Computed example of a mutant assay.
Amino acid sequence: MWTNLFRKLKLEYYKLLRMKGAPAFVARGFSVGIFVEFITLPTFGLAFLLLFPLVKLFRASLPAALIAFFLGKLVLPIFMVINYNIGYALVGKPLQHPAVQHQEAWQEWLVWVQKKGLAYFTGSAIMGLFVAAASYFLVYAALQLYRRKKARRTLPQSRTSP
């Protein structure tokens, strides 16, 4: 199981590095995908629909955004508590309602969303901006490095004859 996951991650990494286009174009797409993934969970998946217009707006790479959207699902659980704490610090104390007994599961979920959803969404959006900015620079640098190494390998070696 772990071997297959590692192989899939490695494949996505190589797809990203070998992607056509300017490094800034690909890096913008990756950062848009990461940001959208960060705000997807609190919006119940509807933010995925923002991916396409944002890619067009920022003139970014759609394949890079989709790769980031996929990889973001693996990274996001690390940030869940941090996102909520940031949002809680900015939004303030969640609304308090009297406890209702014997609610169904979907009603309990709606109460949780009402109480903590705004704080989590706010924190996710802010942390998403920071992670997207950091990922832009990391992907840009990785693409530059990979392409420089590739250019050095493909240059014909000039040999001097004795």
Score class of each variant (00 low, 15 high):
F48R: 09
Y140P: 01
A68F: 08
A105F: 15
T3E: 09
A99P: 11
V32C: 02
A68D: 03
A133E: 04
K20N: 15
A119I: 07
A60K: 04
G21P: 11
T122K: 11
L11S: 07
A105R: 14
R18L: 04
R59Q: 00
Q114T: 13
N85K: 15
Y88Q: 09
E108S: 14
K116D: 03
K56W: 09
E37V: 11
A65N: 06
A68Q: 04
I34S: 10
T154Q: 13
A119E: 11
M127N: 13
L11Y: 09
F130W: 10
P23I: 02
I78K: 06
A22M: 11
V32D: 00
E12D: 06
N4R: 15
L71E: 10
W2T: 03
P162V: 10
L62V: 09
A68G: 08
T154Y: 09
L17Q: 12
Q96G: 01
L46S: 14
V26Y: 05
A134Q: 00
V111A: 14
P162L: 12
Q101D: 04
R59F: 02
A27P: 05
L155Y: 12
S161H: 14
I126G: 04
G87Q: 05
Q114N: 14
K116W: 15
P42D: 08
A142P: 10
V75R: 01
V26H: 05
L41I: 12
K20I: 03
G29V: 02
W106L: 12
